[in-house]
Amino acid sequence: MSIGHTLLGLLESGPRHGYDLKRTFDEKFGHDRPLHYGQVYSTMSRLLKNGLVEVDGIESDGGPERKRYAITEAGITDVSAWLAQPEKPEPYLQSTLYTKVVLALLTGRSAADLLDAQRSEHLRLMRILTDRKRKGDLADQLICDHALFHLEADLRWLELTAARLGRLAKVVNP
C-alpha cells in the first residue's frame, strides 16, 4: 500500500498533526501493522519536499513542537491520479510454492505431503480470519474477505496442483 498517498488522502478532509494522521491511519487501515512515528515523519518530509503538503501551523503548548500539515492543490491532483490508476494485478508467477513443489519432485521428496501441509496452513489462517470477520464490524469484514478470497485462490491452486502431481513429476523428471 502507498502510505504517502493514503496519508495525503486523509489530509483532504482538513489539516492534521503527524500524530493525528498516524492514529487515524492505524484505526482505519493499520489493523495488523500500525505505522511507526518514524514512517510518518519521513513520509511527511518527502511529501513536503515534493510540494504535495505544506505546513499549516506549528504548535508547541509547552511540549515539543508539532507541525500541522495541509494538502496542496498538487497533493489533491496526486491523490486523484493514484485513485484513478488501477493496481497491477499480481500474478505471482514465480511463487515460492511452485518452486517448492518442483524441488520436492526433483529431490524425490513427497510433494503431496508438502501440498497437504500448505493446505492445512492456509485453512488455519482462513479460520482465524473468518472468526475475526464474524466478530468484527463492516471494515473488519471487508478486510478479512479480501484476504480470504486470495487465500481461497491459493488453495484452489494447491488442490489443482495436487491433482496434477503425477503429470508434473513426469515433466520435471523426464
Binding site: M126, L148, L151
Partner: peptide, 9 residues
C-alpha cells in the same frame, strides 16, 4: 468443496 465454507468449521 469450498475452502471459505470450510473456514466456518
Amino acid at each position: 468443496h469450498e475452502a471459505r465454507v470450510a473456514a466456518y468449521s
